[in-house]
């Protein structure tokens, strides 16, 4: 009898195929989060707070508890949830527009208070759902629908390094940046997510996993060329690794 070694996590509804674009790593990350909470045996104790944007598309595919926060406010919603109900494991799932643009105050404030939940932050350097506008993490020179000549530092400022910004705060427990561009990094992302959840369960406070990804559609590249752009440009601007781990 054949033994099943690998299949998609049951935390995604069996009959559903996500609406994410080909090669989009939102899909990958949704899978990884599901695998982690399944392996940790905490599916029935976990709930997600989704941001607005491509990150929010998950709501129709997940098979476990989730809600959608107003754009930028996921960290505030998660604060209310976790403070009112500490026994449940909460994570926010946000893109760079949601977390670092409109939601920057909520993100920094929750981190500064050391709120005991986990943030999964997907950094693809662009606004996805709304069609490719400039994001706080867009690289200098990278074109966007609202920066047609590309990001110009004098006009649009510089790409924001969220982990490093939050690293200036005393309270955060764990700040790590990973990617899902190759098998090795996928395993590292999974380990990082797992560690963040473990810290949350141990009550150690605010953890954030920044995952640098591609956006083939809005980068105007096919998924494989987008991988190359990711490796040659995004990962140079956003070096992977642990920024802080209080252990």
């Amino acid at each position: 009898m054949a033994e099943l070694l690998y299949s998609r996590t049951k935390t995604i509804q069996e009959d559903k195929v996500s609406g994410f674009c080909p090669g989009c790593m939102h899909s990958t990350i949704m899978k990884l989060i599901g695998e982690v909470i399944d392996e940790m045996g905490i599916i029935d104790k976990t709930a997600a707070v989704l941001g607005i944007g491509c990150c929010g598309l998950q709501m129709d595919y997940m098979a476990y508890d989730n809600t959608t926060a107003p754009h930028g406010r996921a960290c505030a919603v998660a604060t209310g949830l976790k403070r009112a109900n500490p026994d449940t494991i909460y994570y926010t799932y946000q893109g760079d527009g949601d977390l670092a643009s409109i939601g920057l105050a909520e993100t920094v404030s929750a981190a500064n208070r050391g709120e005991n939940f986990t943030v999964i932050f997907v950094n693809n350097g662009i606004y996805g759902m709304t069609g490719g506008q400039l994001a706080p993490t867009t690289l200098v020179g990278m074109k966007a629908s609202t920066a047609p000549k590309g990001r110009i530092a004098e006009e649009h400022g510089y790409p924001m390094h969220v982990c490093e910004v939050l690293d200036k705060l005393t309270a955060p427990q764990y700040l790590v940046r990973t990617s899902c561009n190759n098998p090795g990094n996928i395993l590292k992302t999974k380990q990082a997510i797992k560690k963040a959840f473990e810290y949350q369960i141990a009550g150690k406070g605010f953890s954030l996993v920044e995952i640098v990804t591609s956006c083939p559609t809005n980068w105007g590249l096919d998924s494989l060329k987008a991988l190359d752009f990711l490796e040659e440009n995004m990962l140079k601007e956003y070096p992977l690794g642990v920024i802080r781990d209080k252990g």
Binding site: A2, E3, L4, L5, Y6, S7, R8, T9, I12, V17, S18, F20, G23, C24, M25, H26, S27, T28, K31, N182, P183, I186, L187
Partner: peptide, 11 residues
Amino acid sequence: RICPDGAIEIY
């Protein structure tokens, strides 16, 4: 593992 959409099962 690399497949974003879990389209591949391995037995």
